[in-house]
Computed example of a mutant assay.
Amino acid sequence: MEGAGAFIWNPFNFALGCPIQDSEMPFGSLLIYSKEPHAFGPDEVLLFESLAKEIGFGLRAIDRQHKLDDQIHEKGVKAFFY
């Protein structure tokens, strides 16, 4: 974006945002856009909220696995050198 007069064209008329939580703290958002106004009803909102929770669960699981892998690697390195 260059200059103060830059224009951003937005083709979307409706947006829905659902927080992706890590325990208590949100660390991201699932954003869904539509060209149609009021595109999502209550059922779709619940679906996207559920999807955001599942994404949060999956990301936490990946993070835990990385931490476990790091601990295993660290213990393996220490055992090798001691």
Rank of each mutant, 00 (worst) to 15 (best):
I20Q: 04
P19F: 02
H66T: 03
D43K: 06
E36G: 10
F40T: 13
Q65A: 14
F12A: 08
K78S: 10
E54K: 12
D70T: 12
L16K: 11
G17D: 02
R60T: 11
K53H: 13
L30W: 00
K53V: 08
P19A: 04
G41K: 14
F27W: 00
M1H: 05
F81N: 02
E54D: 12
M25E: 12
G58N: 09
K75M: 10
S50R: 07
N10E: 06
V45H: 14
P37T: 02
G5F: 00
K75V: 05
V77K: 08
M25W: 09
E54H: 15
P11D: 04
A15S: 12
K53E: 10
I32K: 03
I62H: 09
D22E: 08
H66Y: 03
F81H: 08
H66Q: 07
P37K: 02
G76F: 01
E54A: 14
I20E: 00
E36K: 15
E49Y: 10
L46P: 03
H38G: 10
H66M: 04
N13H: 14
P19K: 01
L59Y: 04
K78R: 13
A79V: 04
A39N: 07
C18R: 08
L68S: 06
E36P: 09
F81C: 02
E49L: 14
I32H: 06
F81W: 05
V77E: 06
G58C: 06
Q21D: 06
S34W: 05
P37G: 00
A79C: 03
S34D: 07
E74A: 14
P11E: 01
L68C: 01
D70E: 13
D43M: 05
F14T: 11
G56Q: 02
I62S: 11
S29T: 10
N10K: 07
H38V: 09
C18E: 11
L31W: 09
F57H: 13
E2W: 09
L59G: 02
F14S: 13
R64T: 08
C18N: 09
D43I: 04
P37Q: 01
E2A: 13
H73K: 12
V77A: 03
L68H: 05
H38K: 14
A4D: 05
R64W: 10
Q71S: 15
D22A: 08
K35W: 07
F27H: 03
K78P: 03
F27K: 01
I55P: 03
A39C: 06
D63A: 07
K75S: 11
G3Q: 02
K78M: 08
P11S: 05
S23M: 01
D22K: 02
G17L: 06
S23E: 05
L51H: 02
A79L: 11
I8W: 15
I72Q: 05
A79N: 06
L59R: 06
I72R: 04
A15Q: 13
A61E: 15
N13M: 14
A61K: 12
L30H: 00
G56D: 04
E74M: 08
L31T: 09
Q65H: 12
E36Y: 13
M1P: 04
A52H: 06
K35N: 06
K35H: 11
W9T: 07
A6Q: 10
N10G: 08
L47C: 13
Q71R: 15
P42H: 08
R64K: 12
F14H: 14
